[in-house]
């Protein structure tokens, strides 16, 4: 076994070595998230060839990186996962010699709890998880999580909830009156469970709900991400995005360089590259999420700058919550409620 492994990794290293001659960079990022234009521009400016590999969840990314031997240089974990990556030594501090423009990060994202002083990461994109509503079916206030948990008659039967336990449980806990999404208050959790069980018959699906399904009217309302909602609205102007006033999750995906990166210098160059406002704007134009780099809005089209999905209304900003991962005990309770809900 050991010899085989040694031989295999030897062969892998040999290929990696050969490739290094022509300067490469291997990015491990969420699917359908990396702007091809951005990558083209980076290659043009630096001559570094970029390979992108997709993942579909933080857990997948973390598990694969933990195993080692992945060959990636860059990963883009969400805020809740950054600390785990740091604590386990999976990502390395940014090199101040190469990453010189951390000052370009918007003040609100400069010194964040999950990465004090931005020692390890820079923003890729950030967004919110809220509600999507087809206003031609229901034209009431969209900023109300009750549309999902206690739906009006018009929407009942046309609701889709993303199968993201963490997001859905958070919005539900906030709606039921919880401050902390990892609450251990059993009375509150009981309320959340009963509320979900009661709401479920009104839900058509718990699906990732393709943008088309909303645009074409197969789905009428749901829990959805802001950027995806914007893409759907551009296809169907009746769709509006709602920020639940009782509380909604705010997230940020962050670019980090892996400790076992094979091309750390190229990776650092890429990190600094996306800190340039004109480059960060490309990320947003493609994924339709804000990026966290000061001044990048200038380089975006009008549509993006004023999008109601991207610009959070003044009075609803404070309802957005940036959260830490819950403990295993609380996660187990959430899983149990979720399993009961989907049994």
């Amino acid at each position: 076994m050991k010899t085989t492994l040694a031989l295999l990794s030897g062969a892998l290293m040999a290929t990696a070595g050969a490739a290094q001659a022509q300067e490469v960079l291997n990015i491990y990022n969420w699917g359908n998230y990396t702007s091809p234009e951005l990558i083209e521009k980076f290659t043009e400016e630096t001559g570094i060839e970029v390979t992108i590999t997709d993942y579909d969840s933080n857990d997948t990314a973390l598990a694969r990186i933990r195993q080692g031997g992945h060959g990636f240089d860059i990963v883009v974990p969400s805020n809740t996962y950054v600390q785990t990556f740091v604590e386990e030594g999976l990502i390395q501090p940014l090199d101040p010699e190469i990453v010189t423009d951390r000052g370009n990060i918007s003040p609100q994202w400069q010194d964040v709890a999950f990465d004090p002083g931005r020692e390890y990461t820079v923003p890729w994109a950030w967004g919110t998880t809220g509600l999507i509503v087809n206003s031609s079916v229901y034209d009431g206030d969209p900023n109300d999580a009750g549309l999902i948990f206690d739906p009006p008659e018009e929407l009942a039967g046309g609701i889709n909830v993303i199968p993201e336990m963490v997001d859905v449980m958070s919005i539900a806990v906030y709606y039921a009156g919880g401050e902390d999404r990892c609450t251990t208050d059993t009375e509150l959790l009981r309320k959340v469970r009963d509320m979900l069980m009661e709401a479920k018959p009104d839900w058509l699906a718990l699906d990732y709900g393709t943008i088309d399904a909303y645009a074409q009217g197969d789905l009428e309302a749901g829990i959805y991400w802001n950027g995806a909602t914007m893409r759907a609205r551009l296809e169907n102007p009746d769709l509006v995005y709602g920020y639940p006033r009782t509380g909604y999750p705010v997230w940020m995906d962050n670019v980090a360089v892996l400790s076992d990166a094979q091309n750390p210098e190229n990776a650092m160059q890429f990190v600094n590259f996306i800190l340039q406002p004109e480059n960060a704007a490309l990320i947003s134009e493609f994924a339709r999420y804000a990026n966290g780099v000061e001044g990048s809005a200038e380089f975006m089209d009008e549509e993006m700058r004023n999008a109601p999905e991207i610009v959070v209304p003044e009075d609803l900003v404070s309802a957005g919550r940036f959260s830490e991962p819950c403990s295993q005990d609380v996660t187990d309770i959430h899983t149990q409620i979720w399993t009961e809900l989907l049994q």
């Binding site: 857990d59 889709n160 336990m165 699906a205 996660t331 959430h334 899983t335 049994q343």
Partner: peptide, 19 residues
């Protein structure tokens, strides 16, 4: 549509978000 789970989804939940 994920309204109800099958075994494969239940197992995936434990390795994914259920951790």
């Amino acid at each position: 549509g994920g309204r109800t789970m099958m075994l494969g989804n239940l197992i995936e939940l434990q390795f994914g978000q259920g951790r």
